[in-house]
Write a protein that binds this DNA or RNA. Structure first.
Length: 1123
RNA sequence: GGGCGACUAGCUCAGCUGGUUAGAGCGCUGCCCUGAUAAGGCAGAGGUCACUGGUUCGAGUCCAGUGUCGCCCA
């Protein structure tokens, strides 16, 4: 017997029950065992940063990941189910620093790098455990570590990393090592579970990748002016730059630069970063721009003509005008020429070894929108300045150290923080009469993406992987040698073979690759990949170590300090190797690696590329990866592609599915302070994860999703429609004591073929055909990674199941219904619901399981005990499909809509029976016409339906030319043809062809439809015409009144809270005439409403009911039944 | 400045390779159905499909340009 089901489900409580059920029955492990050894589907998880609790934006992607994994499991495919955690990098450091109250790198060094790195590992374990719990709550099936075990390892690591620990792998095997090494082995074959990018294997495999890059000459030490966060003490890579733009107020300082060869005249330059004036080298003008000499008081200035209005303060007079090109080469007196650093940089840096002098240079990029049209150039302080300086061979002056302190050689500014030097600089300029004006301006300025500090630019040594040249010609015309020399073109080749969803992803990635600068992989920090680069200070030779064994064999000192540790700072720093060229002892550079290296290597490191190539080749390349598009073009997608191209020159995945961002309900990014943020846990426990998953599946992946409580309510209501059908079924099946006897399809076959069975009703065969079609359609959608189309198809089906199948079948399931027909209805609805639960399973794992448990597991122990252990049902159901029946049924539902419209217009309630209606069908006929029309007649309460043909006086014929078919052929004749068709000027020939508007159209080029003849009260739609007979006989009126009475009794029962199967006594107070008219129907009403109907004086609480023929009062007699 | 995407009803969004009358859900109004009922149906109100131009017999759909927004790059 089915469990009773509430009509108001507690979805959240149900989800927790299902989670417990899965745990108890080890359902996921059994699914894996069931599919083991089958054809594979390889999913590669993009690692989630284990640094904070998971948010609803993570839930979107994770819902997709789980959806497609579950779907492919239902296709019987073997999978790896490995989740990934991103572990290393600045984002973890920043949080640990915040917890400790640190403000800069010196705090970390004082605290101790080993202890700091250990805290970073501990934080990762904390949040990996947390995110694991949250993901399980979301219903995500992965080879999860026990969260408590992750926390235990964290505590053991904190206590003493060297202590010996035994842990249990996810498949139950003991693994023993030191706490530190156990943590370093997480995710490897011996421990199982999620991969952690801080694992030894991940780090060492990146070493071998870097060694390979070095072998090909693509790894180099660069000197660049780069965005730099003085607080974090680190460069910000190009990848990270754009995440940190924000509006900011800065000084806008205008400075006079006296011209050496034009006494009394000065250039006006403008800067928002006064500290860079110490490092001024040149002044740039636009060669095409016009420049003017202006007189202001007793001073004479040069500036761009287009800047006069905003750059000058006060009255002025224009004296001369020249194109910028004529200013080139003018020498001027720099703002801080007496600083030792400036003198040192200029000495011997000019042409032919002479000292360099400040001068005007030409630059196409100069504009007049802001400033003076003359740009202050400090190549050591800005990216564009650096590029210009490099191309012109200008000297470079770099004033800052890594903490943003001005280095020695800058006089009074040395030793001061860059943020504190503006005032003394302005003071000095005033004192030197070089100050013109200081304003405050607001502009977009880059900030550190982690800590929000405004960035500065400084010249630094960093390590890069070369992307290779950009050739100034089309890709098709590149030679093999040119491509071989350029990683970027190799990647472009590789991505051509990838399926990008949505398609524009390919264009974006190509654009990114074409514009990609060399990949900066170093970071001057503590927690991360230890870059295995050994840069010999004696001879300049660079050695890149390719792995732990390589390091061991080269080590000449410090190995004993490193032994037993994971390859992280500070222990790995102790090892020195002999320079491969000069033999001098060389230390590792202190930098750690860019975290995208960590995530990019996972197509290799997580599938045992080095230790088990056979295993690796079975899972590489992945069939599918999915992540949020914004950002990942330049991050994970890029690093995956770059690393795989270097190692294999092939794509690491076949299909990439991208989706957009989760925003708050107001369309803005979620922020706690804006009140539009929803935490994952809150969402899960308030709306339920299936509701969330339904919202996610119904979102267009390429558009941002607006996530809020209202949208969740809407999604929930859709699911409630399904729940209502399910709960109706269970309620009545229990009432009837009905149970399925053998399987799903077998059941309906058996019932349908019994000798005593009437023909299997068309309505039943229709819904079975629909669900079979749905199975096929959703399979096709999900195979194409189209969750949206799948969800829409399901939604349409649920709608039809509820508002047509169930609505039309309710009476059949009542206790009073014909037993054979009732059994057919139960078997059909049961089969449809079970099939639907299986189709829903990937999207709504909990709701579908809940339905399946009750409809199958509670009654048939021989079948799989979880919906997720069943196979996709399309093949099983395929021979139930009947397209002809489906299209005929679609006509019938349109008939019903039209009748409702007509009844509304005529003011005749559906409760009032009508004698007749007439229908003209658009096409020749319906399949199983009589049975289908009976459905319509019953639904709209009409006693008989007559079909009418062309000859009827009720309809005219109309011709609808089929434009897609004739458009091309007819061309400009179309307007005439269409207006002839509209106005009825046509002739239908005996063979079915039609002449109109001067042409003859073949029978298959037109559709001949019925249309109401003017003046008749009919409704029509696409050639379907419906007419109702509005004449009401006394008999019909009485019957309508009887239905009204039935309604009133049911209302009274409901008001009294009477149970469905309770018998009640009803007292009806009515005039004699009405009583007589109702008499023939009393028995039927009485049976239908389970009541004994007495006429007489109604109880005081009885409700008055307006009938067509007068008013009656209907009441439930007290004391009969009820709560 | 360059690339990609979006712009359709008050709100959230569908509209396939162009086909003549642009749809749904939510919200609003009226009516109806109803022992699934905090659901459902019918009808109504609500749209210059961002704008301009082009291609075409025909453009929400294709092309070009403009504007606004978002993301990316410089």
């Amino acid at each position: 017997m089915f469990r009773p089901v509430s009509s108001k489900p507690d979805l959240v409580a149900g989800e927790h029950e299902i989670l417990a059920l899965w745990r108890e029955r080890r359902t996921f492990a059994r699914l894996r065992a069931q599919n083991a050894g089958n054809p594979r589907w390889s999913f590669l998880d993009g690692p989630i940063t284990a640094n904070n609790p998971m948010g609803v934006h993570h839930a979107w992607g994770r819902a997709y990941k789980d959806l497609f994994q579950r779907f492919h499991a239902m296709l019987g495919q073997d999978q790896r189910y490995q989740n990934g955690f991103d572990c290393q990098g600045l984002w973890v450091e920043v949080n640990v620093e915040r917890d400790l109250g640190f403000t800069n790198k010196r705090d970390i060094e004082d605290y101790g790098i080993a202890a700091f790195v250990s805290l970073c590992k501990q934080r990762v374990l904390t949040y990996a455990a947390r995110q694991t719990e949250q993901s399980i709550r979301l219903g995500m099936w992965m080879d999860w570590n026990d969260p408590n075990e992750l926390r235990r390892l964290r505590d053991l690591l904190a206590e003493n990393p060297a202590q010996t620990v035994t842990t249990t792998s996810t498949d139950g095997q003991p693994v023993t090592d030191t706490a530190e090494m156990i943590v370093g082995r997480l995710g490897l074959p011996e421990t199982g579970g999620s991969y952690f990018t801080f694992s030894n294997e991940n780090n060492y495999l990146i070493w071998s990748f870097l060694a390979e890059c070095h072998r090909r000459g693509w790894l180099y030490k660069g000197h660049d002016s780069m965005p730099w966060c003085a607080r974090c003490g680190t460069g910000i890579s190009q990848h990270e730059m754009t995440e940190g733009y924000a509006d900011r107020e800065d000084p806008g300082l205008t400075v006079k630069l006296p011209l050496l060869d034009r006494p009394g005249e000065a250039l006006l330059v403008w800067t928002t970063t006064p500290w860079t004036l110490t490092s001024n080298v040149a002044a740039a003008v636009g060669p095409e721009l016009r420049y003017v000499k202006v007189q202001q008081g007793d001073e004479t200035f040069w500036l761009g003509r287009g800047t006069l209005k905003h750059a000058l303060a006060g009255d002025f007079k224009v004296v001369e005008e020249h194109p910028g090109s004529e200013l080139a080469g003018w020498r001027y007196s720099g703002p801080f020429d007496n600083l030792p650093a400036v003198q040192a940089a200029f000495a011997g840096a000019g042409l032919g070894g002479a000292d360099y002098e400040h001068q005007v240079v030409l630059w196409d990029e100069v504009g007049e929108e802001e400033g003076t049209g003359i740009v202050h150039i400090a190549p050591g302080c800005g990216a564009e300045d650096f590029a210009l300086g490099k191309s012109l061979g200008l000297p470079m002056i770099a004033p800052l150290d890594e903490n943003g302190i001005v280095i020695p050689g800058f006089g009074p500014y040395s030793g001061r923080d860059v943020r504190d030097v503006m005032e003394p600089i302005v003071e000095c300029l005033k004192h030197e009469h070089r100050f013109y004006r200081l304003e405050t301006i607001t502009h977009r300025y880059p900030h550190c993406w982690r800590c929000g500090t405004p960035l500065v630019f400084r010249l630094v040594d960093e390590w890069y992987i070369s992307m290779g040249p950009v050739y100034d010609k089309p890709r098709e015309s590149l030679t093999k040698a040119e491509v071989d020399a350029s990683l970027r073109y190799q990647i472009m080749e590789v991505i051509g073979g990838i399926k990008w969803i949505p398609g524009f992803g390919y264009e974006r990635e190509l654009d990114w690759l074409l514009n990609m600068h060399d990949w900066m992989i170093s970071k001057k920090r503590y927690w991360g990949l230890a870059l295995p680069i050994y840069d010999c200070t004696a001879c300049g030779t660079v050695t890149v170590v390719g792995g732990r064994e390589d390091l061991a064999s080269r080590a000449i000192e410090g190995w004993d300090q490193f032994e037993g540790h994971t390859p992280h700072r500070p222990y790995v720093d102790a090892v020195k190797i002999a320079c491969s060229n000069c033999g001098a002892p060389v230390s590792r550079i202190r930098d750690v690696g860019n975290p995208w290296l960590d995530a990019g290597i996972v197509p290799f490191s997580t599938v045992h590329y080095r230790s088990d190539p056979e295993y690796w080749s079975r899972w590489f390349p992945a069939d599918f990866v999915t992540e949020s598009f914004p950002g990942q073009f330049r991050n994970w997608f890029y690093s995956l592609l770059a690393m795989s191209t270097v190692l294999r020159r092939e794509a690491p995945f076949k299909t990439l599915f991208g989706y957009a961002l989760v925003f708050g309900a107001d369309g803005r990014q979620m922020h706690k302070s804006w009140g539009n943020a929803i935490e994952f846990d809150e969402a899960a426990e308030r709306m339920g994860v299936d509701v969330m998953r339904w919202m996610f599946a119904n979102a267009r992946p390429e558009d941002n999703i607006l996530f809020g409580w209202h949208a969740a309510d809407e999604a929930r209501r859709r699911l409630l429609v399904l729940w209502n059908v399910y709960s109706f079924f269970v309620t009545y099946a229990r009432l009837a004591g009905w149970e399925p006897k053998r399987g799903i399809v077998a059941e309906i076959r058996e019932v349908g073929s019994r000798p005593d069975a009437e023909a299997w009703p068309a309505l039943d065969r229709w819904i079975l055909s629909r669900v079979a079609g749905l199975a096929a359609e959703v399979k096709e959608d999900l195979a194409e990674y189209d969750g949206l189309d799948a969800a829409r198809a399901i939604d349409r089906f649920v709608e039809e199941l509820s508002t047509w199948y169930l609505r039309r079948s309710r009476d059949r399931m009542r206790p009073s219904a014909d037993p054979i027909d009732r059994e057919q209805a139960f078997a059909t609805l049961h089969a449809a619901l079970v099939a639907l639960s299986r189709i829903l399973a990937p999207i709504l794992p909990f709701l579908s399981e809940s339905i399946y448990q009750n409809l199958i597991v509670s009654v048939d122990p021989s079948l799989p005990d979880s919906v997720h252990l069943t196979r996709w049902p399309d093949e099983e159901l395929s021979d139930l499909r009947d397209p002809g029946l489906e299209s005929s049924m679609a006509v019938v539902t349109r008939v019903v809509d039209l009748v409702r419209t007509l009844r509304g217009q005529a003011g005749i309630k559906v409760r009032q029976p009508l004698a007749r209606m007439w229908i003209a069908l658009p096409d020749a006929d319906l399949v199983e016409r009589d049975e289908l029309l009976a459905l319509a007649a019953d639904e709209v309460n009409v006693k008989s339906i007559e079909l009418i043909g062309d000859e009827s006086e009720l309809v005219d014929r109309r011709v609808k030319p089929l434009l897609p078919r004739i458009g091309r052929k007819l061309g400009s004749a179309i307007p005439a043809v269409m207006s002839a068709a509209r106005e009825g000027r046509f002739e239908i020939l005996p063979d079915g062809s039609v002449t109109l508007g001067g042409v003859t159209l073949a029978p298959d080029e037109v559709e001949i439809q019925a249309t109401p003849r003017p003046g008749t009260a009919v409704a029509h739609d696409e050639g379907l015409v419906v007419v109702i007979d509005t004449e009401l006989t006394p008999e019909l009126r009485a019957e309508g009144d009887a239905r009204e009475l039935q309604r009133a009794i049911q209302d009274a029962r409901k008001d009294a809270g009477v149970e469905l199967d309770d018998e009640v006594r009803i007292r009806v107070e009515a005039p004699a005439a009405i009583r007589a008219a109702l008499a023939p129907f009393v028995a039927a009403v009485s049976a239908e409403t389970r009541s004994t109907i007495e006429f007489g004086e109604a109880p005081a609480h009885a409700q008055p009911i307006d009938l067509d023929s007068g008013t009656i009062r209907v009441g439930l007699m007290p004391g009969t039944v009820g709560p």
